[in-house]
């Protein structure tokens, strides 16, 4: 850096940032105290992370439920089907196989900023929560009756924040 740069830098440093307005300072300190008193800070943060961990088995259970439902209807569809019949035509050709899976969809519903968290290792991370809605539809080709299932799901991504 040249001497000219250093002089210019020094001239910039002569000006210091303006004071925080008294009203704003009071408001911020008050909101911090309120947040602390309401117990919405660390314990909630820790709870949020553990809640996410708690939700993981639920997500697995939901996935198993979806899979089991699919298998159930698949088995239902194949009960009286001739072994040599291709799966795609089984439901349509058998009179006793009522429901055929006709639609499956994963809809993105939105994303939410969960703010900054600390992990157990004190590493700051930025949480981003994605919400989805998974829907499935089965139809009885004989009478046109329909079964619909919609299951909400969400995924929380914790992005590390570098602070060194």
């Amino acid at each position: 850096m040249t001497q000219e740069d250093k002089d210019f830098e020094a001239s910039l440093r002569e000006l210091s940032p303006a004071e925080v307005p008294g009203a704003l300072q009071s408001q911020i300190l008050e909101s911090l105290e309120t947040a602390y008193e309401e117990g919405r800070q660390p314990t909630v943060v820790a709870g949020t992370i553990s809640k996410f961990r708690f939700l993981r088995p639920l997500a697995v259970a939901a996935a198993i439920l979806i899979a089991a439902t699919g298998v159930f209807f698949a088995v239902l569809n194949n009960l009286d089907t001739h072994p040599g019949t291709p799966p795609g035509t089984m439901a349509m050709t058998s009179n006793k196989v009522p429901f055929v899976p006709v639609h499956a969809e994963n809809i993105f519903e939105g994303v939410e900023d969960e703010g900054l968290f600390l992990t157990g290792e004190k590493m700051p991370v930025h949480g981003v929560r994605y919400r989805f809605s998974d829907s499935f539809k089965w139809e009885n080709p004989e009478d046109g009756s329909i079964i619909k299932m919609t299951i909400p799901s969400e995924r929380l991504y914790l992005l590390p924040v570098r602070t060194d």
Partner: peptide, 20 residues
């Protein structure tokens, strides 16, 4: 500017403050 300062301070308290 004042809003984001207050928001950031609250986020910091929630994330960095520790009850341990």
């Amino acid at each position: 500017a004042q809003d984001i300062l207050q928001d950031a301070m609250l986020r910091l308290l929630k994330s960095y403050g520790s009850g341990e």
